[in-house]
Structures are given as structure tokens and as C-alpha cells.
Amino acid sequence: MALIAFYILSTVVVLSALFVVAARNPVHSVLWLILTFFTSAGLLVLIGAEFLAMLLVVVYVGAVAVLFLFVVMMLDIDFVALKQGFQNYLVVGLLVALALLAEIGIVAAAATFGGGATFQPSPGAATNAEALSKVLYTDYLLLFQMSGVVLLVAMMGAIVLTLRSRPSVKRQSIAEQVGRKRKDAVELKDVRPGQGI
């Protein structure tokens, strides 16, 4: 049963990944990508890594793919112009793709995986969320903190590159609004008949 599910899921993964590249419409590409992520999550469930599967759905489908969709839809990119010159690069691209395919084939053919390739989803713990957090926050503390530094640098970078003060843009200043007195805004004038102010 699990084997049948595995073959169905992996066929869908490979085919949908192919359509990500082949689809003419970039929005369709992103939708195929979402399908790829979903079925990969299914594969993870099959080997018992349900936490990773949920993470994949939440992070990649929920955040990354939707972000891609936004970018594809909001940016005004001329996809016809982007695809021009496709034929020129086709030969080189195919050669590189064939070389990579051959390499993967050679590796897969010679597969004698080290460490016995025994996968334990929850080593010595009740659930694999518990097992993951046990090593993540203790043994791999250094890596966890360094990942935090990477994210901090990324955030700094985004701010450095995009935040700029524009003097021409009017902003709301609450303190100024609240602190405004009547005499700052209204002035009583005695207007004589027949004359302007």
C-alpha cells in the first residue's frame, strides 16, 4: 500500500516539477510548484517525518509560493521578451542538463549509501517534533544561533537597500495633531464691509 502511494506521489512530484519549467504561463508555473511541494510533503509523511511535512506545507506553500505568486502577478514583466533567445541557448542548456542527468544516473547506479541509510523519524522520542527540537536547541545550538545571525543580516540588508527618507512624502504626526490648539488653527478676523481679508 505504502509502495503504491510512494510511486504515485513520486510520479506526480517529477511530472509537476517538469511542468514548473515547461509551463508557458508563469502563474501556472507557480501553481505547479505548489503541487510539487504538496506531493513532496506527502512523501515525507510516508517515511514518518510528519513534522517536516507540515513544515514544508506551511513554509513553502504558505509563504514562499504565495510570495512567488504575488511577485509574478505584480511585477510588470514581459514574459514574451524574456523567453526570446530560448532557441539560442537551447543546445548549451540541453548539454548541461544531459551532463547533470548522466551524473545523477552514475551516482544512483553506484549507490552504496554510507551509514546504512537507516532513517529514524523519532529517535528516542515520542514525536519527531520533540526529537528535532531536542537536538536543535541543545546539540546544534551554535547552528541555530548562527542561522539567527543570517536572518538578522538579511533583514539589515533589506532595510539598507530599501528604506529611504523622502522629505516630499507627508506623514501623519499624531503628537502634532493632538497637541494642536484652537488658536493655531482658527483666527477671528473683523472683516469690514466691502473689503476682503
Binding site: L143, M146, S147, V150, V153, A154, M156, G157, V160, L161
Partner: peptide, 17 residues
């Protein structure tokens, strides 16, 4: 290899910016 990768990414991200 994991420390290597995270270190490289820290340096690279700073360099891009």
C-alpha cells in the same frame, strides 16, 4: 559542513548588500 554553509551564507549575504 553545516557550520561551513551557515558561515558562508553570513559572509555572502553581507557581501551582496
Amino acid at each position: 559542513l553545516m557550520t561551513l554553509y551557515v558561515g558562508i551564507e553570513t559572509l555572502s549575504l553581507s557581501s551582496y548588500v
